[in-house]
Structure formats: structure tokens, C-alpha cells
Design a protein around this nucleic acid. Structure first.
Lengths: 114, 114
DNA sequence: CCCTTATATTACTCGATGGTAATATATACA
DNA sequence: TGTATATATTACCATCGAGTAATATAAGGG
């Protein structure tokens, strides 16, 4: 039950859903996500932790950068099912469409470096 | 996006998930649900409203009683998908198993009438 | 070693949410 | 019309969760 609730709670926030839809297209580091969602960096880190605890995302360190990606869902059947459905869901949502359009312009060389 | 979030939020509470699993087995009135979940009657009504807003349950009035049932999900593709998955999910969860076992003993003639 | 940069953690605020008791509404029946 | 019962609504409290600024940690380059 707890694993199920974790996944549903993770999907109950619009910014986290947007984040998952973004990661469908490519691996992203924290500051790229921050630039896309227009929220503070600690907020992004917290969202990523929630998604990771739910088994929806994972990461790989690369020097200073931490690259986040979707999991294959092998840790949780709920996560696996939702990630599969999410590929089709919300594809026509205006906010998602707009975010996906801006994704090619978000590059870490530009948006990072404070 | 908003419809999606509503469904996920509705599924983020253990009592609401239990309620859906109960309704998989049969139609129930409010006081039967209250007796099964051991929470106050207004709390049950609030949970039912959240589930109804998400397109997951509906009801039919029958005299004093209001009988709640699962929808066919035709209002929301997210609700439809989740209700389909929920039939298989959590079937072995200890809390769910215990609730399902007690369901035959919960009859409105016994548990209602204050 | 120091400096810089990317990310995580901490401490905090504010609005949302689950819970309740009290009350209102709706319906059946005498 | 008056009473009883099932449910919904309201008002309120306590906790949770999303947001932030400030600070700590990690890692690369001089």
C-alpha cells in the first residue's frame, strides 16, 4: 500500500508531472530542470527526491553535474505502469506542449553558471 | 493536466484507495463505508466527494440511502486506466485482504441506525 | 590548498488536506 | 405536520507539503 501511495503522491504535483514529461525526451541536470520549470533550485532537488523515492527517476553523477533520467520501472509495478501510460498521456496538454518546445533551447552551457 | 492531477490526488490517500477496493466488490452506502473504515461520517462524505470529482465513483439515491459505486471511467481516461489497474493492484495487501474479508459482515441493517 | 560551480540539506512560511463535532438537509413514515 | 434516520455541509484544528533563502557538501581547476 505504501509503495502505491508514494507513486500516486509523486504524481499529484503539476511540476513533478512536467518533470517526468521532460525526462521522456532527454536526460537533464538539475539546473536545466530549474531553468525549464522556473522554480528555485532547492525546490527542484526536493521534487527529484520524491520522484526517486517513488521509483520513477534515477540519476548518474558526471563531475559537477547530476543527470536525472526516467527509470525502467523495475523497482515498482506501479511506477512501471504509470511511466508507460505517461508516454501517451498529456501529450496534447498546452503546458506540456510548450515545455517540450522550449526543451531544445535549454542547454546546460547556457542556463547553468550563476 | 488538472483532470490528471485530480485523479492522482484522489488516489494519494490510503482510506480513499481502500474505499475504491471495497467498491470493487459491491455497492455500498455511506454508513457501511464508515463502519468498515472506522472514520467519522463527514470524513467519508468528503472522501466520496473527492473520488466523485475525479470521476472514479458515482452514486444513486435510494430513499434515505445513497449507494456509491465505481464508474466505468468514461468521464476520464485517467480514471478508466487506474480503475482497470486497481482491479489487480493491492489484491495481496494485508489491509485490503482484511477489509475484503469483513465486507460480508457489514450490512446496512446492522451498522446504520444510530 | 583555495576558488568556483552544481547540487543537496536545513530552517522556515504559508496554503492545502485529513480529521472531527456540530449543524443543516433530505426523505420516509406515523 | 412532526419525528426519525441517512447523508451533506460548515467550522474548526493539526499536520503535511510546496515554496523559498541561507547554508553545507561535492567536485573540478588554478
Amino acid at each position: 500500500m505504501n509503495d502505491f501511495i508514494k507513486v500516486m503522491k509523486a504524481l499529484s504535483d503539476p511540476n513533478r508531472v512536467k518533470l517526468l514529461k521532460m525526462l521522456q525526451h532527454r536526460v537533464m541536470c538539475v539546473c536545466e530542470i530549474q531553468a525549464t520549470l522556473n522554480i528555485a533550485q532547492p525546490t527542484v532537488s526536493k521534487h527529484l527526491k520524491v520522484l526517486e523515492d517513488a521509483g520513477l527517476v534515477s540519476y548518474r553523477k558526471d563531475g559537477l553535474w547530476v543527470n536525472y533520467h526516467l527509470t525502467d520501472g523495475s523497482n515498482s509495478p506501479y511506477a512501471a505502469s504509470i511511466l508507460g501510460n505517461l508516454k501517451h498521456w498529456l501529450e496534447d496538454d498546452p503546458e506540456i506542449v510548450q515545455i517540450v518546445e522550449t526543451l531544445p533551447n535549454i542547454r546546460r552551457e547556457d542556463v547553468c553558471k550563476k
